[in-house]
Design a binder for these strands. Structure first.
Ligand SMILES: [Zn+2]
Ligand SMILES: [Zn+2]
Ligand SMILES: [Zn+2]
Ligand SMILES: [Zn+2]
Lengths: 146, 146
DNA sequence: TCCTTGACGATACTTTGTCTCAGTAATACT
DNA sequence: AGTATTACTGAGACAAAGTATCGTCAAGGA
């Protein structure tokens, strides 16, 4: 189920932001992304929209928790539409960028448990799994393990 | 127990790299850091050493797993000396940069369990806790909660 | 001691953004 | 509808965190 641009725009409106032409176009571009994407990809697809505006809109959407920012091992930032509205984490394919969301209650229990062992108080956490997804594994096998 | 510069250098030598003057100075600078630091901090402390060399040396040390690269929520990369040689994760104070290492076998079991639920195969994972450490909490209390 | 080759510093370039600012347009008000 | 307000826009400068290039230099083995 591809995301609706209107879902993204509605969130912006709810938060008191204006629904402008450039924002509609950025939302439309992001809505076509089933998996993860980079900010520069969006810039490339919207030559009429300023780079600053693309980044500003992405930031608003991240702040609104409608899209999520990933931190891959190499450090390359990618964004992905949030499918769930509840707290979740991501498993990202390092080869093709496919994203699987997950919420594992055990993980959150571990966070709590670890918190009691640590000095200080946990204010946030990041849990990301980096995977080779099924279709990429299949592709590698065909090509003779890369 | 502050880290020994020689520990860092020994690892480089073991991996077949030359022990040069600039690398000794970078190692010495890093060895003084009990907690986390940024690459630019090291550059600032070593005006005689080229920026490229500082970054190159830090990369070697990260590759050697003698220092760890952290990805804070804001995205600011920080480095921290690895105290343990076994697999571990980090709890970082967002205010002062203090780092506590932890290895929770429960966490790793959860990673395995989550892996079986996911399509695809986990090839890496990142687990970081962002905390307010005890002394920073105390400081905030004194100053009237920020 | 000489030689090979890795490492060096300076500097340009890249990536991923953020800031500034004059001009524009979305919404509110009448 | 007309107007006012002010958020938003695009161009481009700037910034942070590196990486690539390249001529020079020195570490360490023969
Ligand atoms: Zn998400
Ligand atoms: Zn894949
Ligand atoms: Zn570590
Ligand atoms: Zn602290």
């Amino acid at each position: 189920m591809p995301m609706e641009p209107n879902d993204l725009l509605a969130v912006l409106e709810d938060r008191g932001h204006r629904l402008t032409g450039p924002r509609r176009r950025v939302a439309a571009a992001i809505a076509t992304k089933a998996e993860s994407f980079t900010a520069e990809e969006v810039c490339g697809e919207l030559p009429g929209v300023g780079r600053a505006t693309v980044y500003r809109t992405i930031r608003l959407l991240v702040d609104s928790e409608v899209i999520c920012k990933l931190a891959l091992p190499g450090g390359e930032p990618r964004y992905t539409p949030a499918r769930a509205t509840y707290h979740h984490h991501h498993a990202v394919c390092l080869r093709c960028g496919a994203v699987e969301e997950f919420r594992d209650s055990t993980v959150e229990r571990v966070v709590k448990a670890a918190g009691s062992d640590l000095t200080g108080q946990i204010v946030a956490h990041r849990i990301e799994f980096y995977v080779l997804c099924r279709s990429c594994m299949a592709g590698d096998a065909v090509e003779g393990k890369q």
